[in-house]
């Protein structure tokens, strides 16, 4: 199995005037293609910081980060943007859909930022296909305010899939959802993972984490435990 994420002595320090916050302290982490990883830990332990760096939204202050064999920790903003467009799908706790914009158009957004890789199908048909994958083909023309939380999150997942990424990142995807809906979202993740997409998600709910195949626990910027889930 080849590794998709490889981090070596990765640190992130936030400077707030005089004081410094060590959000990540010399983290070593390898995640292989096709894994389903849950990251747990108390609030403020550095989970989101780690996710943002994995997702190329943020840069580490020290250490090395290889994504699909490419060293990304020294890349320019525009190069990181291209990687986000082509390789990474993001799902957020707060859905982050554009309001007053239909589900279909929301899902289409990433297609206009895909430059490196040309997909054969048209943006429209890719967006429709992505919505079908999350079971929302009959809600395509609804705007976010007309959709339930679970449906909105599924639109967000469809949006993260539309450029056919190899890595799906989800920061507390079920944080705003009730348990039944959370289970539905986990089913979607299961299916995607079964189709070969690497999934990394942050959660603080033990039963949600149990859906993953591997659980990391972060505390004070350090990975304190790394266990495989036994089913």
């Amino acid at each position: 199995m080849s590794s998709i994420i490889q981090m070596h002595r990765l640190s992130k320090v936030y400077s707030l005037g005089e004081s410094q916050v060590h959000a990540l302290r010399s983290v070593d982490l390898t995640i292989h293609q096709g894994e389903f990883v849950a990251i747990m830990g108390p609030s403020g332990s550095g989970k989101s910081t780690l996710m943002n760096i994995i997702g190329c939204l943020d840069q580490p202050t020290a250490g090395e980060y290889h994504l699909q064999g490419q060293r990304v920790d020294r890349m320019r903003r525009s190069e990181l943007a291209d990687i986000r467009a082509a390789t990474i799908g993001f799902v957020f706790q707060g859905f982050n859909l554009l309001s007053r914009t239909s589900a279909l158009e929301n899902v289409e957004i990433p297609t206009q930022y895909l430059r490196r890789r040309k997909l054969t199908e048209s943006p429209r048909s890719r967006a429709i296909e992505a919505l079908q994958r999350v079971g929302l083909q009959d809600r395509m023309h609804h705007v976010p305010s007309q959709l339930s939380g679970g449906q909105q999150q599924r639109v967000a997942i469809a949006r993260s899939l539309v450029n056919q990424p190899s890595l799906l990142l989800a920061d507390e995807p079920t944080g705003n959802l009730d348990s039944t809906t959370s289970e539905e979202i986990m089913d979607v993740f299961h299916n995607l993972n079964a189709q070969g997409i690497t999934v990394v998600m942050v959660t603080h709910e033990q039963d949600i984490a149990q859906h993953a195949k591997r659980i990391l626990v972060v505390r004070d910027g350090i990975i304190v435990s790394d266990t495989a889930v036994v089913k």
């Binding site: 903003r77 943007a81 986000r84 467009a85 082509a86 957020f92 982050n96 957004i109 206009q112 930022y113």
Partner: peptide, 11 residues
């Protein structure tokens, strides 16, 4: 959101 989805500064 647009940046997270891959928009460059120039976009």
């Amino acid at each position: 959101i647009r940046m997270a989805l891959g928009a460059r500064g120039i976009d």
